[in-house]
Design a protein around this nucleic acid. Structure first.
Lengths: 402, 402
DNA sequence: TTGAAAGCGCTAACAT
DNA sequence: ATGTTAGCGCTTTCAA
């Protein structure tokens, strides 16, 4: 594990035996060893491969002094172009006035050297970090990559960059990922859910940056919140189920103790059913493995145990899809003998033999809105403390009788 | 977009009107305003909510001086605990000798204040960054999250942290993401594929850190490479197809101009078929949309156009799964009348009505190995320049006749 | 076991 | 339009 750092040391940190002031004075004076001439000659010649170089990126091999391989700094560029570090800094950040001639010289030098600015130093000096921490439970859930897409779409235009951390649905991991990310002093935090450890909540409260909790609005946010009410989603689904005349309802979902949103949907469902005097007839839980396969297996299990069920509500579309495939293979009459519904509105459903009833979770929009709040460009937005509740749309598909 | 930084400014940067030396002297002397006593009393009392606080994370609200809200620094902790910044630094990094009593005082103070170390400053001072840049084409492809999982598994034990960047299969985006990430001076880079812009290649060559290109080994790596030969994968699939006696083969894949690995598999397939004197009978391409649905549609299209095809090779499992579902619905005899195969070995296949023939792409192992190389813990590893070719296993499933 | 000094590579603020 | 000065918040190195 020491290798990377150690190796860099060995390769790079060869002695540089003159002081800063001295060197730049030398350079400015033309160089006692004719140094600037050397740089100049080699720098501004050919070497124009890579059209993208013109876009402001500054790569290409350092052909000048291949013998001295140490990390390049602003000073190297300043020496190579004969201007001060400050001017180089201005050019590379396109800030302040710089003459065209100077800009050209600097850019060419930077490009030729292959200089990549050091954002660590830049961030420390400017107290500005263009990073946004995005903390999500999982990457394999399809749902979160879509939120990410929304976030990226918006941040792209703002100069901010998302940095992803994954918690695996573990509160302690969320806490440590958050800690790690906050230690890089990001410009904002977007994280899934409203349930966090006390410590995590405290860290966010103290961070002094915009925090947006996403996906869920049923609870007390630290700062801003963007999402849907999963409780209401469950309620609405209960309404649709009852309206279609189903009576014996089963629930199938994850066993994860921290899948709060699935839990809230279940609670909403039960509440809705209760208002019609119905209680959940059976339930089945799973954890891990291929969700599609689990959906099949759970469906088989619950139907064997409770053959009189006439509706199955799945906590997500993947297990719902598995259930749907199972039912079709078994020749079960969907939706008349048995109704089915999932949750999320994932793209995958479009390719199934029947359209599974589902509820769109507004993932893209959630991501976009959260990013807008972080970037301070949310239309009509306050400074902090926003609450945006989106309305998921129920799609009855072909698996709820109408 | 200025909001975050600006806001922090306004909130935090209230004047602090004494010098560093003075204050710490005061604190150490007991405080001219009895300051240390105040800290002590309030700091070391109750407030022990959040068991995770004991784990080394240091949150909890700053209850001491809620009126002065500026970002906490080492100095705040040093003042609060009455030791030098250096000692605090030692405690928080568990480096060097510190007496138990001092350590306790420091930790308690840090915890109580909710201090989160500033890694930007730390990284600049130590020239050490525990970040590993991971650059992948997409998050929605299921394949890459699995590689990520392998990477995370290994890095977890090393103190290194993956940071993800997404290119959307665009070389220019890869270049800019790489540039952005290198500017944070990570300890290593893991990126998908061997095809990059000249500029990107040059940046990596100059970065002086371990670079691991993953997924594919057919080409010239910048430094190390871990993957499978997609060309060979195509070849082997051709062998299996021919061995099963199929003759009229169609290919279905992405249209993305930069999906080099799919292209190489196709080339390998064609090469393998050619050795038996067979050429591809038809091909169909897609881009965007639900892969499962596209798989269906493409299958319908290609079969309408070329009804005599007896085998379909899909460039990925999702479109293959769509094709499989389509064929089953249409009552096509799979695998006798028509054979099918995909690529990747995704988990989803386990839940389908039949097991689609596929080839496991060793994604988890690729991620793990790449991370080991970055961390310098690859068994028998060199320092840089490693080449690890893994062998994907062909799974015939139920869609190639045997 | 602890502390003081120097400086990492940049940028803000203020010259010029 | 360009340069100088003084840090940003830490860690390294050396001294005590």
């Amino acid at each position: 594990m020491l290798y990377p750092a150690e190796l860099r040391r060995r390769i790079f940190l060869l002695p540089v035996s003159y002081t800063a002031g001295a060197l730049s004075a030398i350079t400015q004076a033309g160089g006692i060893w004719g140094r600037r001439e050397v740089w100049t000659r080699q720098n501004f010649s050919g070497n124009s491969k890579g059209s993208s170089l013109s876009e402001g990126h500054l790569p290409v091999t350092n052909t000048i002094r291949p013998d001295i391989r140490r990390p390049l700094t602003l000073r190297d560029v300043s020496e190579a172009s004969g201007v001060s570090e400050m001017t180089v800094s201005r050019v590379l950040r396109s800030r302040g006035d710089v003459s065209d001639a100077t800009r050209e010289r600097v850019l060419t030098a930077a490009r030729t050297l292959g200089y990549v600015p050091n954002k660590i130093a830049g961030a420390l000096a400017s107290q500005r970090v263009n990073l946004v921490a995005v903390i999500i439970p999982s990457l394999s859930n399809m749902v979160y990559p879509e939120v990410m897409t929304g976030i990226s779409q918006v941040l792209e235009d703002t100069g901010l960059q998302p940095v992803v951390g994954v918690t695996h649905y573990l509160p302690e991991r969320e806490e440590s990922v958050l800690y790690e990310m906050l230690s890089w002093r990001p410009s904002g935090v977007i994280l899934a859910g409203l349930e966090h450890t006390d410590a995590a909540r405290a860290m966010m409260g103290n961070a002094g940056i915009p925090i947006v909790e996403v996906m869920d609005v049923d609870g007390e946010p630290v700062d801003s919140v963007v999402g849907i009410s999963h409780r209401r989603a469950g309620l609405e689904m209960a309404g649709a189920i009852l309206a279609a005349g189903y009576k014996r309802i089963g629930f199938l979902g994850t066993m994860m103790p921290y899948d709060h949103r699935a839990r809230k949907r279940l609670e909403g469902l039960e509440e809705g059913l209760a208002s019609a005097g119905i209680t959940l007839a059976d339930r089945e839980f799973y954890s891990g493995g291929s969700a599609l396969l689990k959906g099949r297996e759970m469906t088989e299990t619950i139907l064997k145990r409770s053959p009189d069920l006439d509706f199955l509500y799945y906590s997500n579309d993947m297990i719902g899809a598995g259930g749907l495939l199972y039912c079709l293979e078994k020749g079960i009459d969907v939706p008349n003998r048995l109704g089915l519904a999932g949750f999320n509105g994932v793209e995958l459903l479009q390719g199934l033999p029947r359209r599974l009833a589902t509820m769109d979770a507004c993932r893209l929009e959630i991501g976009r809105t959260a990013a807008q709040i972080i970037a301070g460009i949310h239309p009509g937005g306050l400074i902090g403390g926003e609450r945006v509740e989106l309305s998921p749309t129920l799609e009855l598909g072909d698996t709820i009788r109408q």
